[in-house]
Design a protein around this nucleic acid. Sequence first.
DNA 1: AATACTAGTTGCGGTGAATGCAAGCGATTA
DNA 2: TAATCGCTTGCATTCACCGCAACTAGTATT
Lengths: 275, 275
Amino acid sequence: MAPPASSEPDRLRSSRTQAPSAGLRRDLEILELLANADPQGGLGVSRIAEILGREKSQMSRALKALEAEGMAERDGETLEYRLGWRLYALAARGGETRLVQIATPYLRRMVGALNETTHLCVLRGSAVLTLRSVSPSHAFRGLGWEGVTVPAPMTSAGRVLVSDWEPQALRSLLAEAGTLPAGPRARAADDLLAEIAGIRRRGYAAVNEEFEEGLVGVSAPVRDFRGAIVAAINVSAPKGRLGSRLDDAGRLTLTVAQELSAELGFHPSGGRPLR
Amino acid sequence: MAPPASSEPDRLRSSRTQAPSAGLRRDLEILELLANADPQGGLGVSRIAEILGREKSQMSRALKALEAEGMAERDGETLEYRLGWRLYALAARGGETRLVQIATPYLRRMVGALNETTHLCVLRGSAVLTLRSVSPSHAFRGLGWEGVTVPAPMTSAGRVLVSDWEPQALRSLLAEAGTLPAGPRARAADDLLAEIAGIRRRGYAAVNEEFEEGLVGVSAPVRDFRGAIVAAINVSAPKGRLGSRLDDAGRLTLTVAQELSAELGFHPSGGRPLR
DNA sequence: AATACTAGTTGCGGTGAATGCAAGCGATTA
DNA sequence: TAATCGCTTGCATTCACCGCAACTAGTATT
């Protein structure tokens, strides 16, 4: 092309070539921004455009579309945007609502007994997704880990969730998750298999600073009416607070998980039918 | 080529004409479908295309994009899709922000009517956390969320926030909170249960110098679209200022809380779904 | 009061990404 | 071996998005 005249506003300046599914990515950037917004500092069109480095006009139109679909809402006064009802409806409907609702009182009981934060986790792909967290009072700014995922084989909850998989499936899980930024040390498959054998025997899993320095935790499986493991109850805390009573916590977690499983219709008589 | 005469109503577009922001609408249709899907009956590409009446190839590509962004996930075995982790992350992070933003105008209305400071409170573990306060002596919005927590069973807001818990959960709440620096006197569980029964009946809670000498207050529950209690609106003031009109304030708080709940999507028709 | 500035919306032409058909591919079934 | 099913990919058309710029409205500044 012609050499760029300095005064000429060259629009070719490596600007963003449109990528496939750019619209989706743009919309999600916006939603992410709205989700993390400070409630005080409002987000208007210009501010959003500035932060994302995009055109005002696009943001205006994209936000209008998002609003029309219920994914965003606008304050009539300040013209600022926020997340819309539909996002919550989607998450609530799609999430294991029933499971979360039923499990919450059990989590509260755990918190009451241990005075530590308790989580309900499920498996999403090869990662552990925390659906619900209940914290005792000393956890300021709860900042629930809800929605955060971590690779499965590293955590007690993850190991519980895959504890009835076939050895072969476990190996491929390791292969998949192992490519992620590895933890302190890559666990060999045999290690994991032995660990899981222990989990089956004891009924609960415990980790001791494996996932994160200074962090210990226990998890126990929750089964549905078919006997399939559908979730894990997990307690995590600094080693100084929970380390000394880790086994007690494990047994309690197992007990509570069994009661929750019973409420879900699990009947322990039958063998291990599925999965 | 020659553009069609503008006057001519070209009916050829009658088929499926692409609408603006069609991509967003299509993606949301897919997510809605995935959200409402029976966890057992999986949704493959063809089935989704059939249900939505769209091209297989589009669904294949759209789903691939959604998966790349974390909004959908695919089972490697069956090739079936389901909702992805990112949706949950968005909803979890954005929830409180949205609550505060929507609630603030309602708090202002309360202040305007009563000329007393009004709070929006949520439950954090077994403590009540004030997310937002609005004062009559306009402005100095003290640093947004105050972050001040107080034990739940002692305050009207706390009692409202746990007013749909199971009796057993309430007992363990008392056990936990009771270990904290206790208030004037530990309330027996039966007292709390009776109090909460009254709250359910009236729709709002009132305390009369129970938490602090000379302080009275009223609170009413705010429910989200599922019917779950997610927050409480609270008015507290010295007895000399508010004591005489406490019932009026309670009824007003209830009304405002109901309107706020409605804006959050709460539909009072259905029974009390859960928790 | 007039002016500048900020914040948001709308109009417009060019361009490339989405569309839909059809062919390819790899299982599972007959 | 052939047929079917579920899904992906190639390709030409065309329409919706892109960026710019002009416009409106409200607010601060002189």
